[in-house]
Write a protein that binds this DNA or RNA. Structure first.
Length: 419
DNA sequence: CTCTGTTTAGCTAATA
DNA sequence: TATTAGCTAAACAGAG
């Protein structure tokens, strides 16, 4: 073992107070062995496939967080053009079946598994193989208005993955950090008619399909909003060294470690002036909140320009879409957005590879409604009209799709997470 | 007071 | 091997 501190959630299962340990819920797809990982089952061979780094098991004999967390199916390992239906955590359908009726008892799940005549092994408390960023993305993409409050994001994750019903303080802190730290998430202020605590969070319109390239755990490249990046760099530049207080009033000295961690290109004063000129904002007024407002102000522009899009060049269309706030994007907007922005941040996949085929593709978790957007993107990206990139079993699964919207999750009256 | 949001720091693991 | 992405902890501030 390289370290004892390997994302220790799974080793702290005993801290759970409201969940019986090892409540079965995730299904196992025996076809997992076909995906190039040589994976006869989730519990053991997943580890064999990539866990040669000492991260396989924790002291309890359980798969460590790495069971989902290590390089399960790195894109190069697990891509297959003939991917079988989603396995294990991907089978949110079965998961939600187990959850949906309120009957999460081990016995009932076991009975269903036997009734299915399908061998299933479930690891309710294993950490899902999705990064927090991907979980947040799932939640937002899965919401009717493509934006959620923080508590709704929490609720989505806990509803989908029982693992996250424990140690909430830990992962929720990470969620908040991810939201703040990653440019792909945009904070949308509440409007007066929607009072409440906290803002809405949405996806940056230019973030593209961060995970639809098959990278469900680690993105090839972190999305960076160029404008925000420029702002950050301008605030780090020597010209700001005298007053480097941030928006929360906290002093932010330039630590060496931080610079190494967040290494970026240097922005000089000229660039800052260019940016402020471009935005029509005095340089001293440049901050992230202003950028968010700019996004919001682009809403109206987007609608008026929508009718002209078909006659636009690729570059023009891209420019328009990049300036558009996600709130204004209909599904076809987003499909076009994905079409135009893909490739700027993500590497190309091999020929024949369709994003939704990946075993941990987010589309396999999302309801059909959300997947329709991605399907459009897929069609445009690959130039053919697939009836569906997803197996029928996924589409027809009763537990994903509209049922989800009928749940209490997205009804404002449903309240917030019980913490 | 609690929740939300931001930031720093240190670490592991994946990737170029 | 260096760099980068992601996770966790923690401190802090502001809003409700």
């Amino acid at each position: 073992m390289l370290s004892q501190k390997l994302y220790p959630e799974t080793s702290t299962m005993s801290t759970s107070s409201n969940m019986s340990p090892m409540t079965p819920s995730y299904s196992l797809n025996p076809c997992m062995s076909q995906i190039g990982c040589q994976v006869p089952n989730f519990g053991s061979s997943m580890l064999n496939s990539g866990m040669t780094n000492g991260m396989g098991m924790n002291g309890n004999g359980m798969a460590s967080s790495g069971m989902g967390y290590s390089n399960i199916g790195s894109p190069t390992q697990c891509m297959s053009s003939s991917m079988p239906p989603m396995s294990s955590y991907g089978s949110v359908g079965s998961l939600r079946n187990d959850l949906g009726g309120g009957d999460t008892s081990p016995n009932s799940a076991l009975q269903r598994a036997r009734a299915d005549k399908t061998y299933r092994r479930s690891y309710t408390h294993a950490k899902p193989p999705y990064s927090y960023i991907s979980l947040i993305t799932m939640a937002i993409q899965n919401s009717p208005h493509k934006m959620l409050t923080l508590s709704e994001i929490y609720q989505f994750i806990m509803d989908l993955f029982p693992f996250y019903r424990q140690n909430q303080q830990r992962w929720q802190n990470s969620i908040r950090h991810s939201l703040s730290f990653n440019d792909c998430f945009v904070k949308v202020p509440r409007t007066p008619d929607k009072p409440g605590k906290g803002s809405f969070w949405s996806l940056h319109p230019d973030s593209g399909n961060m995970f639809e390239n098959g990278c469900y755990l680690r993105r090839q490249k972190r999305f960076k909003d160029e404008k925000k990046e420029m702002i950050r760099q301008s605030h780090k530049s020597p010209s700001h060294s005298i007053d480097n207080s941030n928006s929360s009033g906290k002093k932010t000295p330039l630590h060496q470690g931080e610079e190494a961690h967040h290494k970026t290109h240097h922005l000089d004063k000229t660039n800052e002036n260019n940016l402020s000129s471009m935005l029509g904002i005095h340089p001293s007024k440049l901050d992230v909140d202003n950028m968010n407002l700019l996004h919001a102000n682009d809403l109206n522009n987007m609608h008026t320009q929508h009718h002209h899009q078909q006659n636009m060049s690729h570059e023009e269309l891209s420019a328009v879409m990049n300036r558009c706030h996600p709130l204004s994007l209909s599904s076809d907007h987003q499909a076009m957005l994905h079409h135009t922005s893909m490739g700027h941040h993500l590497k190309q996949e091999p020929a024949g590879y369709t994003p939704s085929n990946h075993p941990f593709s987010i589309t396999r978790l999302l309801p059909n409604e959300s997947k329709s957007d991605i399907k459009m993107y897929t069609d445009m990206q690959y130039g053919y009209n697939t009836l569906s990139p997803l197996p029928n079993s996924v589409h027809s699964h009763p537990s994903i799709g509209n049922d989800y919207y009928n749940s209490s999750l997205y009804h404002p009256s449903a309240g917030t997470t019980t913490l």
